[in-house]
Amino acid sequence: MTYKLILNGKTLKGETTTEAVDAATAEKIFKQYANDNGVDGEWTYDDATKTFTVTE
């Protein structure tokens, strides 16, 4: 399945997608991606749209 991440960081904003077997796997990938890019904030997930959002 395709999952989407919306980044609302102070210095980085944008979107990315990943292919993952489930939401938990996608979350791990996205949290590593956000960490690698210096984004740390409040996480939400919308199962209907398979979208994670992180807001600093």
Rank of each mutant, 00 (worst) to 15 (best):
T51L: 04
L7I: 15
E56W: 13
A20G: 05
D46Y: 05
D47W: 08
T18Y: 08
G9E: 03
E27S: 08
D47N: 10
T51S: 05
T53L: 06
T11W: 15
A48H: 13
K28E: 09
D22E: 04
V21K: 13
A23Q: 11
W43R: 00
K13G: 05
K10F: 14
Y33Q: 03
W43M: 04
T51E: 04
T25V: 09
Q32D: 09
Y33F: 13
T11R: 09
K28L: 12
E56L: 06
T17I: 08
N37E: 08
T2V: 13
T51G: 02
A24F: 10
T51R: 03
G9S: 09
T49E: 07
L12Q: 10
K13D: 05
T55A: 06
T55I: 08
F52M: 02
T16F: 15
E15M: 13
M1I: 15
D46I: 05
I29R: 07
E56G: 06
D36A: 13
A24E: 13
K31T: 05
T2H: 10
V39D: 02
K28I: 10
A20I: 02
D22V: 03
M1L: 15
G9D: 04
K10H: 09
D36F: 09
Y33K: 03
K28T: 10
T11K: 12
G38T: 04
A23Y: 14
A48W: 11
L12S: 07
E56T: 07
W43L: 03
A20T: 05
T17G: 04
M1V: 15
Q32G: 07
K4N: 06
T18F: 06
L7V: 14
T53Q: 07
T44G: 07
I29L: 07
D46S: 06
A20N: 04
V21F: 13
A26V: 03
T55Q: 05
Q32W: 06
D47P: 15
L5G: 01
G14L: 14
T17S: 12
M1G: 13
G41I: 02
L12G: 07
G41N: 02
D47E: 15
N8K: 09
V39K: 03
D40F: 15
T51K: 03
T49Q: 06
T18L: 09
E19H: 14
Y45K: 01
L5P: 00
T16A: 13
K4S: 07
L7H: 04
K13S: 11
F52I: 01
G14K: 13
A20W: 02
G38L: 06
D40R: 14
T2E: 08
A24T: 09
K28S: 10
T53W: 12
T25H: 13
K13E: 07
K13F: 10
N8R: 11
T25K: 06
K4V: 12
A24P: 09
K28N: 09
G41S: 02
N35A: 14
V39P: 02
Q32H: 08
E56I: 08
T18N: 03
K13N: 09
W43K: 00
F52V: 01
T55K: 06
N8P: 04
D40A: 11
L7M: 14
N35D: 11
M1S: 11
Y45Q: 01
A48V: 13
V54I: 10
A24I: 09
D36E: 11
E15P: 04
L5A: 02
M1K: 13
D36Q: 13
E19D: 10
W43Y: 02
T2K: 12
T11Y: 14
E27I: 08
G14W: 15
G9N: 05
I29Q: 07
T16S: 09
L5W: 03
K31I: 08
D46G: 02
A26Q: 00
N35H: 15
T44W: 09
D47A: 14
A26S: 02
W43S: 01
V54L: 09
V39E: 03
E56H: 07
K4H: 13
Y33T: 03
K31P: 00
I6H: 05
F30L: 05
T11V: 10
L7G: 02
A23P: 10
L5M: 05
D40I: 13
K28Q: 13
A20S: 06
T17Q: 12
K50H: 14
G14N: 10
D40H: 15
T55V: 08
Q32F: 05
V21R: 08
A24M: 12
D40M: 14
Y3Q: 01
T17N: 07
I6D: 03
N37S: 08
V54W: 03
A34P: 00
D40E: 13
Q32S: 09
T18R: 05
D46A: 05
